[in-house]
Amino acid sequence: MTPTYYLLLSALLFTIGAVGVLVRRNAIVVFMCVELMLNAVNLTLVTFARINGSLDGQVMAFFVMVVAAAEVVVGLAIIMSIFRTRRTASVDDANLLKY
């Protein structure tokens, strides 16, 4: 098993996440796609740590996990507040600010 396959897999996951952010309409799903992108990055970091023979990449993956957890707290609070007001989490309905 060469590590390159893991890099391809993580690139694929990152792309799926990025496309999901762009095409999905529900703020929660959009946010989950962002989390998928962050986890794809973790896989890349761990694979490169393996290729480079250093542990730095694995330590960085821990940092990314902590940041992602903090981001969930802030993000869900914001999405909750707009859901309580509008009874929907669709990003298409948030359209008061334009032009």
Binding site: A18, V21, A27, V74, I78, L97
Partner: peptide, 14 residues
């Protein structure tokens, strides 16, 4: 205000 927070958050995380 809440709408700007959602937009900033989702695009910023992206």
């Amino acid at each position: 205000s809440q709408e700007s927070a959602v937009k900033y958050f989702l695009l910023g995380a992206f």
